[in-house]
Amino acid sequence: MAVKNFGFAAIKPRTIDFEQFDGRLLSEILELEPSFKVCLSCGGCTATCSAGNLVSFNIRQLNLLLRRGETVGLENEIKKCMLCGKCMLVCPRGINIRNVIMLIKKSVAKSHSLKR
């Protein structure tokens, strides 16, 4: 068996590294939906989320990871949202969460059409 399969170096670090920050998607979304800036990470949205109550899906955490430039896996995760809009009803900061989700979806779709 190859030695590299054992080494710690082969494991991708879990650390969020701000020197590797990929802020492209984030700045696009913040520009189109500035209300996203004031999220408190209170978790109200996750608590009420229709999708999150059925399957493993955490909209608060997903949005937070996006704010940290962590976009790997976002594309598949966001598909679980049903766009019901319940999250927006509870948000104490009045964030248009559904629009944030729509913008993520649009940008994912755009990058796919570019690839094609």
């Binding site: 879990r14 650390t15 969020i16 590294d17 701000f18 020197e19 990470s41 608060r60 955490q61 937070l64 990871l65 940290r68 962590e70």
Partner: peptide
């Protein structure tokens, strides 16, 4: 730790 995402974090 970015406790709300449960991940260690570093920055300069």
């Amino acid at each position: 730790e970015d406790t709300l995402s449960g991940r260690p974090l570093k920055m300069n």
